[in-house]
Structures are given as structure tokens and as C-alpha cells.
């Protein structure tokens, strides 16, 4: 009896966490295991990739270079799909394997038409390993003037600023709604689709088309800006707290009279 009492107290006192680590770390693919230990020329891609949007979304080396990331001995075997460093002219098709809408606009643009004749490919602006998220910041004087003047690029950028701001504001709002336990799934899906349409359009380099499409997207975004906000409501909160305080005051006055 006494022993059970002690056990009960021990349990009740602190059914509490320890500091020991739990669970297993995610498995590292063989490409990274091997390359990370190599001299700078071979390990730099790993370091750069780790900062990329691809790393953030779990897109690893084999997505672009092929091969078997789980088998060290045969990881670079062409029979396992290893293709090494892609040729510059094959880059748009390679990236387009996932980013389909973008490739279509790119191939029809001045950039795409100059492919193989010194024109830029995806990696020229987005980087090859430190792949950056598509954003307005990429359309900069520093990037664009390495090949041509900034005039037209600036027009494109200005045509997209408002839509970009709206997208960012809605993303921020989704994060807040999510943290309040509100179901943002439909809103996120719609935003994902509109953002992709918007980002794909960057690559057309057609200022008129960008202006027209931006207006359409802005109209769609306006519709979503009110969605998903089925929160408890501050006004209801103010009324509820107000009623409770009023009740306290009322009871206090009655009590004073009786006392």
C-alpha cells in the first residue's frame, strides 16, 4: 500500500518531459554524404543547395542530375538515370519538367528565342544550386544589365509590383489564420494557383500581356482577400467581456445595498 502511494506520488508529482532527444533525424542522401566531404569545387554545390528553395522543399540533387540517391555504389550510374551536368540548352526543358507554365512563356520570349545563342537560361537568373525563390527582386539592375539595358525590365517590374504586394499580404494573412486554427486549405490552393500563374507570366517579357494578366490576377486576389476569416470576432468578444463586467458591477451594487 505504502509502495503504491510512493509510486502514485512520483507519477503525480511530475509526469514530465526529459531533455533527451527523441526520434531519428531524416536520412541524408548519398550525394550529400559524399560531396559534403570533398574539396571546395565538389562540396560548394552542397553548401549552395542547402540555402536554396529546392532544399526548403526537399528537391534533392537527383531531381536535376538523375542517378540513385540511395545507393552509394551505383548513384552515378547512367543506367540509374544519372545525367551529370545538364547542357545549357537542355536546362529550360529540364526545369520545365516541373515548372511547366513557366517554360511555355519563356520559350516564346526573347530570352527563349536566344537559347543556344548566348541567351539566358533558368540558371542565369535563378542560380544553379543556390536556386532562389521567384520574386520581383530578381528583376534588378544588377542582374538585367549584365546582358542589356534595364529600361524594359523596369517597366515589367513596375507592372507587377501591386500584384506582388497583394500576394505577400494574403500569404501573411494565411499564416495568421492558420495559427488561429482556421481552415485555410481552399484559400491556399487558390493562392497557389494564382501565384503560379503570376510567376509564369514574368517570363513572357511582354509588358502588355503582363499588365493585362496582372489586372485579372488582382481582381481574383481581391475576391480572396475577404475569405477564410471566420474568426471568433473581436466585436463578439468585446460584447461578451462587457456583459460580464456589467454583471459584476450590478451584483456589486446590489451587494452594497444589502450590506
Amino acid at each position: 500500500m505504502r509502495r503504491w502511494g510512493i509510486i502514485l506520488m512520483l507519477l503525480a508529482a511530475c509526469v514530465m518531459p526529459s531533455t533527451q532527444a527523441m526520434g531519428a533525424a531524416p536520412q541524408v542522401i548519398v550525394c550529400i554524404q559524399c560531396h559534403a566531404a570533398q574539396p571546395a569545387r565538389l562540396s560548394d554545390p552542397v553548401t549552395l543547395w542547402q540555402t536554396s528553395i529546392h532544399a526548403e522543399h526537399g528537391i534533392t540533387c537527383n531531381a536535376c542530375h538523375g542517378g540513385d540517391p540511395m545507393d552509394a555504389a551505383n548513384s552515378m550510374d547512367p543506367a540509374r538515370g544519372y545525367r551529370g551536368v545538364p547542357a545549357p540548352t537542355s536546362v529550360p526543358a529540364l526545369c520545365g519538367g516541373c515548372h511547366m507554365g513557366v517554360t511555355k512563356h519563356y520559350m516564346n520570349s526573347a530570352h527563349g528565342r536566344a537559347l543556344g545563342r548566348g541567351g539566358p537560361t533558368c540558371v542565369t537568373c535563378h542560380g544553379s544550386h543556390d536556386i532562389t525563390r521567384a520574386s520581383l527582386e530578381l528583376i534588378s539592375k544588377k542582374n538585367c544589365t549584365t546582358c542589356h539595358t534595364f529600361d524594359k525590365a523596369l517597366m515589367i517590374r513596375r507592372a507587377m509590383v501591386k500584384t506582388d504586394g497583394m500576394l505577400k499580404a494574403i500569404e501573411k494573412r494565411i499564416t495568421i489564420l492558420k495559427s488561429q486554427g482556421i481552415d485555410t486549405d481552399p484559400l491556399e490552393k487558390k493562392l497557389f494557383s494564382l501565384r503560379n500563374r503570376f510567376h509564369a507570366m514574368y517570363h513572357s517579357l511582354d509588358v502588355t500581356l503582363i499588365r493585362e494578366e496582372s489586372a485579372h490576377i488582382q481582381a481574383e486576389l481581391e475576391k480572396t482577400s475577404g475569405a477564410g476569416g471566420a474568426g471568433t470576432g473581436y466585436l463578439v468578444g468585446v460584447i461578451a467581456v462587457g456583459w460580464a463586467l456589467l454583471a459584476a458591477l450590478l451584483f456589486s451594487m446590489i451587494k452594497k445595498n444589502i450590506d
Binding site: 471568433t232 470576432g233 473581436y234 463578439v236 468578444g237 468585446v238 461578451a240 467581456v241 460580464a244 463586467l245 454583471a247 459584476a248 451584483f251 456589486s252 451587494k255
Partner: peptide
């Protein structure tokens, strides 16, 4: 009085 004051504090947190 105490219950009303508690409910007021409680609803501040809830809302």
C-alpha cells in the same frame, strides 16, 4: 461578483 469577473478575464483570453 467573482464569477462575473472571472468570466470577463476568461473571455478576454478566449476572444
Amino acid at each position: 461578483i467573482s464569477i462575473s469577473l472571472y468570466l470577463a478575464c476568461f473571455m478576454v483570453f478566449v476572444f
